[in-house]
Design a protein around this nucleic acid. Structure first.
Lengths: 229, 229
DNA sequence: GCATTCTTGTCATCGTTCTGTCATCATGGC
DNA sequence: GCCATGATGACAGAACGATGACAAGAATGC
């Protein structure tokens, strides 16, 4: 999937810039604001995948922002990581009880914040953490057992699904019929080599989408490969 | 039933006892062991809702336990909170990357641990934290033991209720019959795989509402999933 | 304590979908 | 054009899931 969208609410300009830079380097799309009210507006405009929220900010206080984000249905499920300059344990607990998902006390290391944000996203949105394989315009979600192409949901038979998954795990590579049999059917199978042809055809038919080219390439006398289209 | 089951792996007897007491006071069903290998056995026997894991323990090391829990399909989704005596940031990051969901450095306050565990459970297993889960037009209140669809109150048998609850905690994900048996009936059960079919049918019948599509998706040769309709 | 109602696991059966194979047709290389 | 290699359509058997019925056991009410 695309970049995870992160909303950063931090009124210390130096820290904000540092974090923005580091998160962008990690592949996040970062929106940043020092102001609580503006943060709420931004969140309403485009719901982010995760919010990093300073406790002490201008405008509406951090905990109030947290509460309001939770109250609004559109943002109720968005994970929130709170930051605080104070080491007070009570704040931490109030934060977590208000609905924050994690809590860090300044000073913290950017690496720690990034690791924690990563851990939360991995759990909440597997799609954002790369559990969905994408090759060209094809997307395969193994846990949900779903395949889409250009947003359209495809329906494949079990064997075609496994075949496509194998191809998508090794995009661009050419596999002989024998290799495909071993990988998709299992080494013990005693199946005609030519049978692969048939399943390739079924796969091609299954991933057909109006106006999209065939991503399965036939390599004469060698085998088949999946191209990123 | 709706007590969250917590597995505590801590080899300092004083700390273990303290935490056990505090968590029990919070309404958790706590199983405690000082030994890593035993922890794995216990987790395999009855999958806990959350694991609190010390980094430095007897037997298998904490990080190894974490890795093995993640590798086993039955426990791969169980949230893990790691504890460490060392303050080293690298450990923290390695922990989170191995699949831990949160990380605390000793000395920590029991209140903080409890708050963090609570926050994780609220996010991962809202039903256990006494919240109402909603998937599509379905709503499930675990504490009140009530299910509604499009405002209409449904009546489900106990097994169907647990099955639906499990599905709603992992919407969209496909589970094999074996996984469903482990999750809903318990790992020790020796029940025919095909029996799951029957309960799926009963669940489907139970959540039938005029004009609403069937949210239970059959994935041939893979299992079943609950779709957000 | 007893009768009634629910719940639950299993089975046999039925319809659907999948799958491997074959025969035939199309295509590319020489 | 000829040969080798792929593509394609058809098909029958196998695999798989859906369903209705049933009996044993548990829970409930009186």
């Amino acid at each position: 999937m695309s970049q995870p969208r992160l909303l950063l609410v931090e009124d210390d300009p130096a820290l904000a810039e540092l974090l923005e830079f580091r998160f962008q380097a990690e592949g996040y799309a970062v929106t940043s604001t020092p102001d609580g009210d503006e943060a709420l507006l931004l969140a309403a405009e485009e719901v982010p995948d995760l919010v990093v929220l300073d406790w002490m900010i201008e405008g509406t206080s951090g905990i109030e922002v947290c509460r309001r984000l939770r109250r609004d249905k559109a943002t109720a499920h968005v994970p929130i990581v709170m930051l605080t300059a104070r080491g007070a344990e009570d704040d931490m607990i109030r934060g977590l009880e208000t609905g924050a998902d994690d809590y860090l006390t300044k000073p913290f290391s950017p690496r720690e914040l990034i690791a924690r944000v990563g851990a939360i996203l991995r759990r909440i949105r597997p799609a954002l953490a790369g559990e969905v394989i994408a090759v060209g315009d094809l997307q395969l979600d193994a846990t949900a057992h779903k395949v889409t192409r250009r947003g359209k949901i495809l329906s494949l038979g079990p064997t075609e699904f496994r075949l496509l998954k194998f191809f998508m795990e090794h995009p661009g590579r050419v596999f002989s019929r024998g290799q495909l049999l071993d990988a998709v059917w299992g080494t013990a199978s005693e199946i005609e080599l030519r049978t692969v042809d048939v399943h390739i055809r079924r796969l091609r038919k299954g991933i057909e989408v109006e106006g999209a080219p065939d991503p399965v390439r036939t390599v004469r006398s060698a085998g088949y490969a999946l191209e990123a289209v």
